[in-house]
Design a binder for these strands. Structure first.
Lengths: 140, 140
DNA sequence: CTAGTTGCAAAAGATTTGCAGACGT
DNA sequence: ACGTCTGCAAATCTTTTGCAACTAG
């Protein structure tokens, strides 16, 4: 039994071919962040027989099971409104280069703790957060 | 000549009825953040004759002219994937209550400056950023 | 006058859903 | 065997676009 198999079991999901394929792809991809369509194409190109609808359904289940995280990197200079997914690892934020599309992950304790304080000051507790810094190569 | 009229002129946009209506609505709304559809309905209910397509077009122009900002508050607990717009005032971030939908704005210098540093450390300069904290009323 | 705008209807793009058949346990 | 899952096609939903008529400057 592979690692992915037990991850799926733990999430209460039957271990099916499509689910294993998608989970493995996300865990091994260089890119780390993929749209539903990119995942679909990658698997089809790889010879798998899978439907785009299934990719969406599986990703939604993975998101609910906290196996993956969904992002909507829009805003910056206004890229397409398409969600992308990544394996839900440690807590980190993203920096997206608006010129190259490169995505850099980072984690900053100072920022994290300020967020906690701010929420508390307003009588809330944090459920989740999303920080995306849209950047451009520095032209020093 | 009203305040809004000169704002439009300054942005290089002809002063038309739809543009004035939308700008005024966004400037006076209690809600501060509205989707294209909410703006459309509000104006129609208010007796204006306007098309939804025009609302989208005008909002896109306003965004380009930096008169408004577009947000995609998704993620948290997964609300609909619909953009919302607000007047582009000072630099601030958002806290969205996942239970009530309430949106609180805030600005934190510590967070802002850490972002600058982080971008610089990676050889980038900030173009824009988006921070949304999804929260819930604290149940102490 | 004339380029920029608008409303409507149709198009596009992303994601979801109904359903009959296939599959994991 | 049984309830879950899948692929396909059709449906939904938000946002965009083509176009002829309209209007601000």
């Amino acid at each position: 039994m592979t690692e992915e198999t037990s991850e799926l079991r733990k999430a209460g999901l039957k271990v099916t071919h499509p689910r294993l394929q998608i989970l493995r792809l996300l865990e091994t991809t260089e890119q780390k962040h993929m749209t539903a369509d990119e995942i679909y194409r990658a698997l089809v190109d790889q010879g798998e027989e899978i439907g785009l609808a299934t990719v969406y359904r599986v990703l939604a289940q993975f998101e609910a099971a906290q196996l993956v995280r969904k992002h909507m990197f829009d805003g910056g200079t206004g890229r397409p409104q398409q969600a992308c997914y990544e394996i839900d690892e440690e807590d980190h934020d993203h920096m997206v280069c608006v010129e190259t599309g490169e995505v850099v992950e980072f984690h900053d304790e100072a920022i994290e703790s300020r967020q906690e304080e701010i929420a508390r000051e307003h009588g809330f507790e944090i459920v989740d957060h999303s920080l995306v810094i849209y950047v451009r190569p520095r032209k020093n």
